[in-house]
Amino acid sequence: MTTQEFLGKKEFTIHTQTVSESCPSNIALIKYWGKYENQIPANPSISYTLNHCKTNTSMEFIADETFSVQTFLSGNEEVKFAEKIEKYFKNIEPYLPWILKGKYIIRTENTFPHSSGIASSASGFGAIAKCLMKLDEIFTGEITEEHSLKKASFLARLGSGSACRSLYNGLVVWGTSDEVAGSSDLYAVKYPDSEIHEIFRDFNDWVLLIHEGQKSVSSTVGHGLMKTNPYAERRFQEARENFVPMKEILKSGDLHQFIKLVEHEALTLHAMMMMSDPAFILMKTGTLEVINKIWDFRKETGLPLFFTLDAGANVHLLFPSDNSKEKITTFIERELLLHTQKNGVVKDIMKF
């Protein structure tokens, strides 16, 4: 499916309407870091979609009023976010020709704390894109579920790259890869469940809130710095190459190799930050202490507790929901929570 196929060509009749949608966040296993114009990823990525950490959004469209956007986050008006959404809506007008023909009041709430290391931009733009597709269906007539999801993923990508992966449950791929049939730079696709071993279908993600404040460098700036990073091209190639072992790992259920690859990807992401110009470090002392304790715990017990990191200090603790879960959670609560701010942890699962 090409960009041309997402262009809005149908006749439409608009009227005042309110819709609501919900969208989860996701955590990448093979990381996306670096992009080209129009939110095209420099390398493919694969992520787990979370089950509990979601953005719930209602969108009131008031027809025939001057185009404007009002946004409320947990009941508080957010003017800067409204300006960002106005710009976003103007950018996607070619794909939704009715979008600038009214006023919007958008109310949104997250089920997880702000600045928690869980991508609220992914769940937020995912929910907005789903609301827009609901309106599009109302205004332009019938649309297939498959096309609606693909177009929602396409639109979400133009707001926040990783948001396109949040439209599907389970494991999701964004970016063209020879290893994944139907994969695209324009939207995400669901990784086939039939190719995933059952051990990877019921996983825990506990996010340790090492640092709950604003990041010193935004992800947008971080992506931009990859343009001058001397190691960028090799990194992009490595991510493409990592889909080869990942495909085999997911099919065979090789948890040992899964752990090795996921942790390597997380550390590589932060290595790219450290090798940017200017360089920046988002990990904190607590991040490193947790990583070392995880490695020691795994060496001593052989239990499959491991980590991944987003572009921040907080640590995503990953472990399967099998008979090792009780010992792992006891260790987390006794040894790792003390490295967080205020014993902060967000508990989620990836189950499909």
Rank of each mutant, 00 (worst) to 15 (best):
G159N: 08
R240L: 05
M226T: 06
G286R: 10
H256A: 15
F243I: 05
H223K: 02
T220K: 11
A181R: 15
H270V: 07
M246N: 01
G175A: 05
P278D: 03
M275S: 14
L158G: 06
I259F: 03
H211S: 15
D185L: 06
L261S: 02
Q257D: 13
Q237V: 04
N169V: 13
Y231A: 03
N229K: 06
S166K: 09
S276Y: 00
K260F: 13
I199Y: 14
E212H: 08
S252M: 01
G224I: 04
R165E: 07
G222A: 07
M275I: 10
L267I: 13
V221K: 08
S194Q: 15
Y191R: 10
R201Q: 15
S218H: 01
R201C: 15
E265V: 03
M226L: 03
P278N: 08
S162R: 04
T220E: 08
E265S: 13
K251M: 06
M275F: 14
A181W: 11
H256I: 11
D178M: 07
E233F: 02
E212V: 14
K260I: 10
S160C: 05
E179A: 09
M274R: 15
R235F: 00
F200R: 09
I249R: 05
L171E: 02
N229C: 04
E212N: 12
S162G: 00
E248L: 09
A279Q: 13
L208P: 00
I210Q: 08
S162K: 05
D205M: 07
L267N: 13
S218V: 03
A266F: 04
Y168C: 12
M273V: 11
A279R: 13
A232C: 04
K251W: 01
E195D: 13
L208R: 11
L269H: 09
G213R: 12
F200W: 08
K190D: 06
R201N: 14
F243A: 05
D193C: 10
E238W: 10
M246Q: 05
V262I: 11
V262A: 14
E195Y: 14
V172I: 14
S183M: 04
N204W: 09
H211Y: 15
Q237E: 13
L167V: 14
H223F: 01
S252F: 00
S184C: 07
V217N: 04
A279S: 14
D205A: 04
G175K: 08
K251A: 09
M275A: 11
V189I: 12
F280W: 07
R240F: 03
L255Y: 12
Y168A: 12
G182V: 07
V172P: 09
K284S: 09
E238G: 06
K260H: 15
Y191L: 12
K190A: 12
T176C: 03
Y231N: 11
I259E: 08
H264T: 14
A188H: 04
E248R: 12
H270W: 01
I196S: 09
G253Y: 01
Y168H: 12
D193T: 15
V221D: 00
R234S: 11
R201D: 07
S276W: 00
V221A: 04
I199E: 10
Q237D: 05
D254W: 00
F243M: 01
Y168V: 10
P278C: 02
G175V: 04
Y191N: 08
D202V: 10
E233I: 02
G213V: 14
L158A: 09
